[in-house]
Amino acid sequence: MLLSFSTILVNTLLFACPLLLLCTGGILNTRAGIVNFGFDGIMCTGAATYCIIVSQLKNNFGGGVAILAFFITIIIGIVFGLIHSLATLLFRTNQFLVSMVINYFGYGLAVILPLTFTGEINYSLASIYIYQFSWIAILVTFLAIYIFAAILFLTKLGLYIRGIGENPTAVALNYIHVRRSRFYISLFSSSLACFSGALFVYVLPSTFIYSNNFAGIGFLAIALWMMAHSRFFLTSIICFIFSFLYQYINASQTFIVISNNIPSWLWGMFPYLIALVSLMIFRPNTELLKSWAQPYVKAGRKWLC
Rank of each mutant, 00 (worst) to 15 (best):
P271L: 06
F39G: 10
I185N: 03
I274F: 08
M227T: 07
Y107W: 14
L22F: 03
I130R: 10
S99P: 05
V35H: 08
I237T: 09
L220I: 14
G46M: 11
V54I: 11
Y296L: 08
Y123H: 13
I262H: 10
A149W: 05
A228R: 02
Q56W: 04
L68N: 04
G25W: 01
I102G: 07
S230I: 03
G41I: 08
V54D: 01
Q253D: 03
I151Q: 02
T141E: 00
S278R: 01
P263E: 06
Y104C: 06
L90D: 12
N167S: 01
G38Q: 10
L14I: 13
G300L: 09
M1D: 13
L234P: 08
Y104W: 15
N11C: 12
M1Q: 13
L152V: 03
E166S: 02
I151A: 02
L20W: 07
T49Q: 12
L152N: 04
I209C: 13
L139V: 01
A126F: 15
I67S: 14
G268I: 09
I241D: 00
L279P: 06
L86M: 08
L245A: 01
G197V: 00
K290D: 11
V79W: 10
T30M: 05
F232S: 09
N59L: 05
L13W: 14
G77P: 06
F80D: 12
Y210R: 15
C23G: 04
K290S: 11
A170W: 00
F80R: 13
A47Q: 08
G25I: 00
I42S: 07
F214W: 11
T45F: 14
F219L: 15
F15Y: 15
V171T: 03
P114V: 10
R92W: 11
K156G: 07
L157W: 13
L192V: 01
V111W: 10
A251F: 00
T73F: 03
L224E: 04
M43H: 11
G108A: 15
M100L: 15
G25P: 04
Y131M: 12
V111F: 12
T116D: 12
Y129L: 09
M227L: 11
C305E: 13
L2I: 10
I78V: 15
I34W: 11
S189N: 03
A221K: 04
T73N: 03
V65P: 07
I237H: 07
R162M: 00
Y246F: 10
L143M: 04
L143D: 01
N94F: 12
F242E: 04
S278A: 07
L187G: 04
I237D: 08
I121L: 15
Y50E: 05
I138A: 02
G26S: 02
L187Y: 08
Y107G: 09
V140M: 04
